[in-house]
């Protein structure tokens, strides 16, 4: 019998790998794939505890997580296409229009 902690450890490792992808990759598509990996790790934890408790409720939650992940992928990829069309970039650090302007020279510098 495989102990519960093995499944939880596997889920933690997968979550960590997904986190590395989200933090270090610059291609928006790969970042989204890493997010899918993290969602899968969360699903694995739900199913492991569901099996340990003998309660099928965790399977229902995993079902909802899969539905939300599918919706997220559809909308996220549509945004990637729209961004690529409008400015030809799929790198997440090239799309920073919403970022706050950092005013290094004080408020008067930008007035002129």
């Amino acid at each position: 019998m495989v102990p519960l902690s093995w499944y939880l450890l596997l889920a933690a490792i997968l979550f960590g790998i997904g986190l590395v992808g989200v933090l270090t990759k610059r291609n928006a598509l790969v970042v989204m794939m890493s997010v899918e990996l993290m969602l899968n790790a969360a699903n694995l934890t739900f199913l492991a505890f569901s099996r340990q408790q003998g309660n099928v409720g965790g399977h229902a939650i995993a079902f909802f997580v899969i539905a939300v992940a599918a919706a997220e992928a559809a909308v996220g990829l549509a945004i990637v296409i729209a961004v690529h069309r409008s400015r030809g970039a799929v790198n997440v650090d090239e799309v920073s229009e919403l970022r706050e302007e950092i005013d290094v020279e004080g408020p008067t510098a930008r007035a002129g």
């Binding site: 490792i13 790998i17 997904g18 590395v20 790969v30 890493s34």
Partner: peptide
């Protein structure tokens, strides 16, 4: 599973 997941990030 761990190897292919690492492959996603390393590729």
């Amino acid at each position: 599973l761990v190897l292919t997941a690492a492959g996603v990030v390393v590729s």
